[in-house]
């Protein structure tokens, strides 16, 4: 392992430990690492967006003859009017473009991509069921979907049949959230494993070269 590689690993280890030190209590090393991290993350975006969007999607095509792209460029610049209260209303126009296109795409894709296939699947489970176990599962899913949706339906007071179904919905939701929690533990631990692996295998591994 070269000296540069060892230095590199020690730099990473320093910042890793500095960030972990917050678990004990707030301290200047943590604050230093935190602010460097915030700065680097912001700086990363500048170069990336400049190159992949401003140059590749705006400047180069404009220079290549697509002169009309000055319009989205201008709209993009209008976003910066938000810094001046007098002309900040101008930023509404590019925002409206973003909101309009997104809404146009969402209106159809949310229904076509989520609502219809999910409803269809709930019904299909009965069609494809073979035997008691499958029918039981299909019924469990159908009852769960309906009671969950009723629980989240706030336009009517949850009393009577609606109240009972909503109560059933809460139990279903609690089971799902419990499952979520079980999975979340795994997710968080995975991230810690990555850093521990680095500290034990890479960083402590350099000790044999140094000592």
């Amino acid at each position: 392992m070269s000296g540069i590689e060892i230095l590199q690993i020690w730099i990473i280890a320093f910042f890793t430990l500095a960030l972990f030190s917050f678990l004990y209590k707030d301290n200047p090393f943590y604050r230093l690492a935190e602010n460097i991290f915030a700065g680097l993350t912001t700086g990363y975006q500048v170069s990336l967006i400049w190159d992949t969007v401003i140059i590749q999607k705006l400047w180069d095509p404009m220079m290549g003859g697509q002169w009309w792209l000055f319009l989205p460029g201008l709209l993009g610049l209008m976003m910066f009017s938000r810094f001046s209260p007098k002309i900040s209303w101008m930023s509404r126009v590019p925002l409206a473009v973003v909101m309009g296109i997104t809404a146009g795409i969402f209106l159809t894709t949310q229904l076509h991509g989520f609502v219809l296939p999910q409803m269809q699947a709930t019904m299909n489970t009965f069609v494809t069921a073979k035997g008691f176990a499958d029918y039981f599962l299909a019924s469990l899913i159908a009852v769960g979907v309906i009671s969950t949706m009723i629980y989240f339906y706030f336009s009517h007071e949850h009393v009577g049949v609606l109240g009972v179904t909503a109560k059933l919905g809460i139990w279903f939701i609690m089971i799902s959230f419990g499952a979520h929690f079980g999975y979340t533990v795994m997710g968080r631990v995975s991230l810690l494993i990555g850093r521990t692996q680095f500290l034990i295998e890479d960083w402590i591994g350099t000790f044999s070269y140094i000592l």
Binding site: T109, Q110, H112, G113, F114, Y183, G187, S190
Partner: peptide, 18 residues
């Protein structure tokens, strides 16, 4: 919602446990 539903390309997902 956009690609699988709109264009029918088969998809597999690998995601965080969360």
């Amino acid at each position: 919602s956009i690609v699988n539903a709109g264009y029918g390309v088969p998809m597999g997902v690998g995601c965080t446990a969360v």
